[in-house]
Amino acid sequence: MKFLFYLILVLLLVPLQTTLLPHLSVWSIKPDLGLVAAALVGIFAGELEGLLVGLAIGWVLNLFSAGELWLSLLTNGGVGILAGFLGRQLTLVTSISLGVGLLLVSLASGLFAAVSFTHLDLSQMWWMVESIALPQACFDGAVGAGLYWLLSQWFHVTRLRTE
């Protein structure tokens, strides 16, 4: 049952991210739903599932992106495992703390991506951080916090976690 849920999640993320989200982008920036989904799975289901689902999301989304595979695997898998660890260490998880965590992780991944573009000079790299990584991190944090809040309102979160 869980496997089916994750399969549907990964399959639906692709059209959502590539076809529908460009219509909802703000200043040509759209949130990275793969990152948000990997973080939520990590928080709710633990490190191992967060890692595996994050890797699957990273790989499948990378099939529809011009980006490098290793960066996508590393970012999404890393977020899944990190969210699992943080979820265990924090005594109280709120939508705000999740949003801030996602903002920081997304910003770190954006910085890492900017540094990995070897053909960019320092000013271009800064432009990329300022115009893409930072707004996207804010977007990711807001979307993650909103989704977490919705999930915690609609479902009994403690039960979802212990199952």
Binding site: V14, T18, P22, L61, S65, I132
Partner: peptide, 14 residues
């Protein structure tokens, strides 16, 4: 064209 790049870092179409 059925979509745009999954990330914001590249200008690409699918």
């Amino acid at each position: 064209v059925i979509g745009r790049d999954a990330t914001n870092r590249y200008r690409a179409i699918i």
